[in-house]
């Protein structure tokens, strides 16, 4: 089988390991770097990759990915420490931050209950959240797990665990988004009716 020169083939093989990158995309990227980037620009990319792997770790308080410990959200004095938003993955924090409506703290579970994937309560970072509760500062916890079976199971499991500790536990609302139009809702399907009835319910 015809092949490219060894260094190009090696780069293509490595790029193919990235999600959503197949042979064609990897070839396109490799040849773009080869033809359009200077040696310095390529060095910057390589350095950025190494830098990320060396400097990035997990926040000891909330499990967010960070280059400083505690992370920017945990060490920010302007944020409300009484309010904690629980998310599944570190990148979910960015999604919540984009709303510009939330100024509390975070806690990252590093996953959701998924029996089929072998993820049970012991695999999630729940212990750290319970440790934070012991300090007595937290008054409300917002469960911002994904609106799917795994996220919902995680939210209900956590609410059963947290409510007896005397904090207010709430769930992000699900249903018709602001800016949406009721005319475009598929009210003939039971799925939509279920979404609507579930909207704004506390866990």
């Amino acid at each position: 089988m015809p092949d490219y020169a060894e260094p190009i083939t090696r780069l293509i093989q490595q790029l193919k390991r990235l999600p959503s990158v197949g042979q064609k995309s990897a070839e396109r990227m490799a040849f773009h770097i080869l033809n359009n980037w200077s040696k310095e620009e390529t060095g910057v990319l390589a350095e950025a990759l190494l830098d990320m792997k060396e400097k990035i770790g997990y926040c000891s308080v909330c499990n967010n990915i960070t280059d400083v410990d505690p992370c920017q959200y945990c060490s920010d004095p302007t944020r409300n420490p009484k309010l904690v938003c629980v998310v599944q993955q570190p990148h979910n924090i960015v999604a919540v931050e984009r709303t510009r409506q939330y100024d509390g703290a975070y806690h990252v579970l590093m996953g959701a209950l998924s029996p089929l994937s072998g993820v049970g309560p012991d695999q999630l970072k729940i212990k750290g959240l319970l440790e934070r509760m012991k300090a007595g500062v937290i008054e409300e916890i917002i469960l911002a797990t994904n609106p799917n079976v795994e996220g919902e199971a995680t939210a209900v499991y956590l609410s059963k665990l947290l409510k007896p500790l005397g904090v207010r536990v709430s769930r992000i609302a699900m249903g018709i988004p602001v800016g949406g139009d009721l005319d475009y809702g598929s009210f003939t399907s039971r799925a939509c009716r279920q979404d609507v009835s579930a909207a704004s319910q506390a866990v």
Binding site: L113, P115, P121, V149, E152, A153, V156, R190, A191, Q194
Partner: peptide, 17 residues
């Protein structure tokens, strides 16, 4: 199109399992 959803029962950990 949904005929029957079992979303709600799976929110309980044991039933979900």
């Amino acid at each position: 199109e949904l005929i029957r959803s079992y979303f709600d029962i799976q929110s309980d950990y044991a039933t979900g399992l």
